[in-house]
Simulated scan of single mutants.
Amino acid sequence: MIDLYTWGTPNGHKIHIMLEETGLPYRIHKVDIGAKEQFSPEYVKINPNSKIPAIIDRDGPDGGPVTIFESGAILLYLAEKTGRFLPAEDEPRARVLEWLMFQMGNIGPMFGQCYHFRSSAPERIPYTIDRYTREVGRLYGVMDKRLSTGAYLGGEEFSIADIATWPWTKNPAAYDQDPEDFPHVKKWIKKISERPTVKRALRVLDA
């Protein structure tokens, strides 16, 4: 059994999707970041960085519990645990890993800042909004070029690179982007959104 500590953010949804895709048994522990529950002493013992998500796998590699934080690390751990969504062969594996790192190093930080300054910041700063909005558009363009040559980010198979990236990029309008400017991304977003596992993953916090 996997204990998942999470909330309804893109990083949380990554792990919801992965667990639904793999079929691993898990139970949800809601960490309300709006109420700052991520800073509670109990949660800091699980994730010293006070972010979501985090997991405790009660059936770890040595038979005992193992705790993991950082969504990318969790995806890698679950992929290796199940043998799914991460190719074993060197070159295909490298393609998936490079696009996973592209999400971690670019999509997450830039999209997060764009959304914050456009929608949540107490002061609207035109230069900052413009800077992050343009960078988000550039990153959508990088994805669109990649997806013009293959069905998924890592190649022809759905992988943890797609699972990591889709929750951040599924709504271009939230970042003042026109989906029609990125036709290959638009097709990819729709294809992933139609997966039954993804539909279930987006509802796991409803209970």
Score class of each variant (00 low, 15 high):
Tyr140Trp: 04
Ile160Leu: 08
Asp181Arg: 15
Phe102His: 07
Arg84Thr: 04
Pro167Glu: 05
Thr165Pro: 01
Asp178Arg: 13
Ala88Lys: 15
Val96Asn: 01
Met101Tyr: 09
Ile160Lys: 01
Arg138Gly: 03
Leu139Cys: 05
Ile125Ala: 08
Ala121Val: 11
Ile163Leu: 06
Pro87Ala: 12
Trp166Glu: 08
Asp130Trp: 00
Glu180Ser: 12
Thr128Asp: 01
Ser159Gln: 07
Tyr152Met: 08
Pro179Cys: 06
Gly141Tyr: 09
Gly154Ala: 10
Leu100Thr: 00
Tyr140Arg: 03
Gly83Tyr: 06
Met101Pro: 00
Val142Gln: 11
Ala173Ser: 13
Tyr127Thr: 05
Lys145His: 12
Asn171His: 15
Asn106His: 13
Trp166His: 12
Phe102Asp: 04
His116Ile: 03
Arg146Pro: 01
Thr149Asn: 14
Glu98Phe: 00
Tyr132Cys: 02
Gly112Met: 02
Met101Cys: 11
Gly137Glu: 11
Gly108Ile: 02
Asp178Thr: 07
Leu147Phe: 05
Gly108Phe: 04
Arg124Gln: 14
Phe102Cys: 06
Ala151Arg: 15
Ser148Ile: 09
Ala151His: 12
Met110Ala: 11
Ala161Ile: 02
Leu86Asp: 02
Asp181Phe: 10
Gly105Ser: 14
Val96Asp: 02
Phe102Arg: 05
Met143Tyr: 09
Met101His: 13
Phe102Glu: 02
Pro122Met: 06
Ala161Leu: 02
Tyr140Leu: 08
Ser120Leu: 15
Val96Tyr: 01
Asp162Ile: 08
Phe85Ala: 01
Arg124Tyr: 12
Leu153Phe: 12
Ser159Thr: 08
Tyr127His: 10
Arg84Glu: 07
Glu123Lys: 14
Leu139Asn: 03
Gln177Leu: 06
Trp166Pro: 09
Asn106Phe: 10
Ser120Thr: 14
Met104Gln: 13
Lys145Cys: 05
Arg93Gln: 12
Gln103Glu: 14
Ile160Met: 03
Trp99Asp: 00
Tyr115Pro: 02
Met110His: 07
Trp99Phe: 09
Tyr152Ala: 07
Thr149Asp: 15
Glu157Cys: 13
Phe111Thr: 00
Ala164Val: 03
Asp178Val: 03
Leu86Cys: 08
Trp166Cys: 09
Arg134Gly: 10
Val142Cys: 10
Pro122Gly: 10
Leu86Lys: 04
Asp90Ala: 15
Gly112Cys: 03
Arg138Pro: 05
Glu98Cys: 05
Ile160Val: 08
Ile160Trp: 01
Glu157Trp: 10
Gln103Arg: 08
Pro179Leu: 05
Val136Lys: 03
Leu86Pro: 04
Met110Ser: 09
Arg146His: 03
Cys114Ser: 11
Trp168Gln: 11
Ala161Gly: 04
Arg118Gly: 07
Arg93Glu: 11
Thr169Glu: 04
Ala174Phe: 14
Ser119Pro: 08
Ala164Tyr: 03
Tyr175Leu: 10
